[in-house]
Design a protein around this nucleic acid. Structure first.
Length: 495
RNA sequence: GGUCCGAUGGCCGAGCGGCUAGGCUCAGCUCUGCAAAAGCUGCUACAGCGGUUCGAAUCCGCUUCGGACCUCCA
């Protein structure tokens, strides 16, 4: 097994990864609240954990990857008296809450597929685990860390912090939190402003409600993740991930709930937080109005976009930065990524047709490059360094293809293994034409015609009819077909 | 106000005590009928000011600027 180092948010240190029960790994990632379309910032987080999932599998772990769908309990606004997000959308659109849930779950899945983000092993929903949440609340009350008021149940942060460490993940001190608590309305029921809701009473108008020992109501937002991670991964598991913005209070509350319910130690060994996607230096967020959807990005139909970009370009762009750093979105950066990706994929295509020479090239050490690729990923999933390494190999492939250097059979085979493994399996860079081009099937005729045109142009060239040759190339170029002369003749490609 | 991050060449973005990633852009060259592609070469940067060290983009302090969290957010 590779010596994998992970930056652990809990300890704020880079640590050697040790699975609790190798080769099995349990990983939980906070999924979306399905009340609206996901935007690109959301995609970045799920992409980051897609890479982590892929790499763990790649180096031989069997990962049970749980990523939830939040379909109830996430409230709108500042206080615990806010409306449920799903319920609000249902009311506004005059549909059933479950229609909202279904619609945006579908959208989420579509987006994940377009970006080649793998589905998790289990994708549980909050509404599917109401019973478990209720029994967990009962346990927390029984253990003395929660109390009921008028059909609402609150977690007592103060009581909990007398026995355990509240704030270990986010580095908060409970007294500082106290002094910084804002004065909000609607918190009179709570014994302490820091307390948070485990169960909320539903009034008659509330669209989503379930019976409970405390009357009709619905579960608090933080609870579902505690429940579902425990249910599918156990009281103690390996990795918990999510966006940086969930660290506090969401993840902190999750830990507290787990500990309070099970009287156990900290439930997660490695916490991993993905950083934000920014626009002009500011976090992309719905509230900022600077977020855009994957569809807007692909079509280019947005005021911040000069034109559209393919999903793979976006995926590659995001992987050129480290998951734990903020990444700033810009047209220039996307264009750079687009060109870089094209260079990389072309080289990989060339690699497939490379003819080996009799002897290995002693100046080129493919094994060393391969080791460098592993090292990069072992160092906290450093995809930018991995990509830099992959570009090293691109030079060899292109040079070999141009006949400037020679590569032996073993070297070519090793390169193929390397690019298949790291490009496809780890980075998840799929062949774009295969992903987007469903219409390729009926292109046989066009393809044959193009071959003919390129042949005609080659004939023209050998007759030194350069004007004719250029006319064919220019006309095709206007149609989006690029004709390229190589040492083995001319070829065409379609953007 | 509190807590915590960050400031790297024309742009994006790694590195986090010595060995000066990578991509994109730009310029020159090679190849080519011309292009394109590819290859080679060049543009040799680490916010500012102090300090520690034989040696600092990397460690420490201060200053300036930016951001995140503290409230829903991936």
């Amino acid at each position: 097994m590779q010596p994998l180092q992970i930056q652990n948010s809990l300890t704020r240190k880079k640590e050697l990864f040790k699975a609790l029960n190798p080769p099995h790994v349990g990983m939980y990632v906070c999924g979306p609240t399905v009340y609206s379309n996901v935007h690109l910032g959301n995609v970045r987080t799920f992409l980051s954990f897609d890479i982590i999932y892929r790499y763990l599998e790649f180096i031989g772990y069997k990962v049970r990857y749980v990523r939830n769908i939040t379909d109830v309990g996430h409230l709108v606004g500042d206080t615990d008296d806010g409306e449920d997000k799903i319920g609000k959308m249902a009311r506004l659109q005059k549909v059933e809450p479950m229609e909202i849930v279904q619609k945006y779950t579908n959208d989420f899945h579509d987006v994940m597929r377009v970006f080649n983000i793998l589905p998790p092993s289990i994708e549980p929903t909050a509404t599917g685990h109401i019973i478990e949440q209720i029994s967990s609340i009962e346990k927390i009350i029984e253990n003395g860390y929660a109390y009921e008021v008028n059909g609402n149940v609150y977690f007592s942060v103060r009581t909990f912090s007398n026995d355990y460490d509240y704030g270990e993940l986010s580095g908060r001190k409970i007294d500082e939190l106290m002094s910084n608590t804002r004065d909000l309305d609607g918190q009179s029921e709570k014994r302490d402003p820091l307390d948070f809701a485990l169960w909320k009473k539903a009034d008659e108008t509330h669209l989503m409600q379930w019976p409970s020992p405390w009357g009709l109501g619905f579960p608090g937002w933080h609870l579902e993740c505690s429940i579902m991670s425990t249910k599918y991964l156990g009281e103690k598991f390996d990795i918990h991930g999510g966006g940086m913005d969930l660290k506090f209070p969401h993840h902190e509350c999750e830990i507290a709930q787990n500990v309070a319910a099970n009287k156990c130690e900290s439930p997660v060994n490695y916490w991993i937080h993905g950083n934000m996607l920014t626009v002009n230096g500011r976090k992309m967020a719905k509230s900022e109005g600077n977020g855009f959807t994957p569809e807007e990005l692909i079509t280019g139909n947005h005021k911040l976009l000069e034109r559209g970009y393919t999903p793979m370009t976006v995926r590659f762009f995001m992987l050129m930065g480290h998951y734990a750093s903020t990444l700033d979105f810009s047209n220039d950066a996307l264009i750079a990524a687009e060109k870089g990706l094209s260079k990389l994929t072309k080289a990989v295509e060339l690699l497939q047709g490379l003819e080996p020479t009799a002897n290995e090239n002693l100046d080129i050490d493919v094994m060393e490059l391969s080791n460098k690729c592993y090292s990069a990923m072992n160092d906290d999933f450093n995809t930018p360094v991995l990509i830099a390494n992959l570009f090293e190999g691109v030079k060899w492939i292109n040079s070999a293809s141009d006949g400037r250097i020679e590569l032996g059979k073993d070297q070519i085979e090793l390169l193929k293994t390397l690019y298949k493994g790291f490009m496809e399996d780890v980075l998840g860079i799929a062949n774009e034409s295969m992903v987007e081009d469903g219409k390729q099937g009926n292109d046989d005729l066009a393809s044959n015609l193009l071959d003919l045109l390129v042949q005609l142009r080659t004939d023209a060239k050998s007759n030194k009819d350069y004007a004719g040759a250029d006319r064919i190339r220019n006309t095709l170029s206007e149609l989006g077909i690029t004709v390229t002369d190589g040492k083995d003749g001319s070829s065409w490609s379609h953007e």
